[in-house]
Design a protein around this nucleic acid. Structure first.
Lengths: 364, 364
DNA sequence: GTTGACTCCGAAATCGCTTTCGGGAAGGGT
DNA sequence: ACCCTTCCCGAAAGCGATTTCGGAGTCAAC
């Protein structure tokens, strides 16, 4: 009758007051069961859905979470972003909450965004990702009193909520695994140390080297950007070493795939002369030749967990420090991690010495 | 002074009324320039941001767009989803609008979602993707009077807004290109015909075959799911033909990568015995060996266009039929499309005949 | 000097929902 | 008969913006 189903319409229809209807729907204790049943039936019949804006205005909450998309190094994050977001959105939908996507394009824009959110409060909590080792966002968000959970730790996250993979453990295990296959010269292609996860992975690799009692001197590290080209270039540098490593721990799958190309370009076969392990567990890795051995982290559930942690934070059910979760990555054995082959790199060195001799070079 | 910067605070500070301040900020004509300047200065100084919920409640609009994530065939869409969404979010941010992510997990859930949006109106427009040839969503959304634009056409989109790539043209060009290289038996690994884009690509391939005056009888088509495994299986079937095709147009890059593996498994080299062209322009394609020739569509700008079309629709500036845009895909020459090599597949057939003779088979 | 047009601003209603406060009706105890 | 609970529900005041309506003031014109 009265247009779309507002609270008022239901009230008039049942000869009740608006406030009674509202409280009935919200299951207040001071409304009789009979009335509640009546109201609910009517609401159902009319297909009533509360006006979100009115509700949120009155409540002072927004029931909306924001996901801050990483605005650089698109390459790496792209792969699992959509899956993560789908996980979050699905979990939120269960509570009637919404997920909005924020895409700042610079640090300045990101800070401006935070300011705006702090003022308008039209987003009641944030998920940030791509955390830096020294990440100013933690302080800013704390000062602005915006509830947030970070996907990845940082130096100042003792008192904040976060969900992270145990990168250090993962890379320690990865290194140990390679050592167990018989490798003695295990290199690491690392990411920029500003990224906390890159630093953690570095540390994990070092730990693995030392736990396997390998000689640190034969464990070279090459830092690179998180991209295909970066991985390729880093691998070229590793191949130029004398002797080169027989195995490489790569900071990410994309970097590992770049490294694979460098290996092929050198006339070698990834997983034969040089073993490789990536990180991320991307599906792509299984499609290439040879398929990339990697460590995978559970992206599907991560989204859900982030969402639930943040809701509980916003609602005040739990404190930030109660929401710190560390998950494990698991090794996915495919084709690029095998025992070292004999005769390499000695054979190459022989070739090289010959070449050098031919060109007048002399080996020590 | 008075807590966060509400309209009221500014008013009191300037000894003005709330309504004056509001109209000043919204640039009403009946406010003097001097007052406007004063108000704006104060607002700026206090860092005023309007409360979205109050504003949207009063306005009756939500200034929020929804992107309906495709809830199946995750594999394919994943690759460019995040880029598309980033494009949308960025464009929307310019207008002060938000983007929320909707992830229905079944047709029923999707319809329910539409109903809810129609009632609450807390999302004022939708972008839908993954359109079917016969897509009931078009009718439903029209009936519910929810403004929307589809990323991809359908059978009933004459009166609706859409942004689509000219799939047919792309595949006609792709086929022509292969024919120009000298191929005479050009196959197509097609996607499920329920997807409109899959049907369009099929049609384009057929057109290319006929325009190049090739024999339709030697232009086999294999339908498959949009996945790596699907592409691989389809290619296996194509390889079993006698004679097999010398070139294949693949409905997507992922399918093409699957096909490449089947080719390798058969002891052949993609791009040598059998040429391949994919579609989507994924970066991954450039990372594999040999790099995949493909056709790329501009994802970066697509998001922006979708957002702008939808805003204009919601605002009523333009009608649905005014917002139909067809963009072109462009060929990305990499390594898997080359002229056919001589001696193949005749050589293979010889081998096969021998085999058959040995096992007692007889050729007609 | 009354009228009229025009400029600029304030009061108040409105959007739809939540929540506090208070009061009527029913019931139980002295 | 009176008082005090307890159980329900209605009235009304927000939430923070927008927008309509009308009125105070200025100035020119007749």
């Amino acid at each position: 009758m009265g247009g779309p189903a507002r609270l008022k319409v239901i009230a008039e229809r049942l000869n009740l007051s608006q406030s009674t209807v509202s409280r009935a729907l919200n299951d207040y204790q001071d409304i009789s069961d009979r009335t509640k049943r009546l109201v609910r039936a009517a609401a159902n019949e009319l297909g009533y859905q509360p006006n979100m804006h009115a509700r949120r205005l009155a409540l002072g909450k927004s029931e909306t979470l924001g996901y801050v998309m990483p605005w650089q190094d698109r390459q790496v994050t792209e792969a699992f972003l959509s899956e993560l977001m789908a996980g979050m959105a699905k979990a939120l939908a269960g509570y009637g909450w919404d997920l909005t996507v924020l895409v700042p394009h610079s640090v300045a824009e990101e800070l401006e965004l935070f300011q705006r959110i702090a003022r308008t409060r039209h987003i009641s909590g944030l998920v940030i990702s791509r955390t830096y080792s020294d990440d100013m966002r933690f302080g800013v968000l704390r000062d602005l009193q915006i509830p947030f959970v970070s996907h990845g730790r940082s130096n100042h996250c003792d008192e904040t909520a976060w969900l992270d993979v145990d990168n250090e453990l993962a890379f320690a295990e990865m290194t140990t695994y390679l050592a167990g296959l018989g490798h003695r010269r295990i290199a690491h292609i690392a990411g920029p140390e500003v990224y906390n996860f890159a630093r953690q992975r570095r540390t994990g690799w070092r730990r693995g080297i030392s736990e396997a009692a390998l000689d640190p001197a034969s464990a070279p590290l090459e830092e690179t950007e998180l991209s295909f080209e970066g991985g390729k270039a880093a691998m070229v540098r590793l191949l130029a070493l004398d002797p080169p490593p027989t195995a490489v721990c790569c900071v990410s799958d994309v970097v590992a795939i770049g490294a694979m190309q460098a290996i092929r370009d050198a006339g070698l076969v990834p997983g034969r002369e040089i073993s490789l392990v990536g990180y991320d567990g991307l599906e792509i890795g299984a499609w290439i030749e040879p398929p990339l051995t990697t460590m995978s982290q559970p992206q599907r559930s991560a989204g859900r967990q982030l969402a639930e942690m943040l809701i509980s934070l916003v609602e005040g059910t739990t404190g930030p420090a109660d929401n710190q979760e560390l998950v494990r990555a698991s090794l996915v054995r495919r084709g690029t991690a095998n025992p070292p082959i004999s005769g390499w790199p000695e054979s190459r060195q022989a070739v090289r010495q010959t070449t050098r001799a031919n060109s007048g070079g002399v080996d020590s």
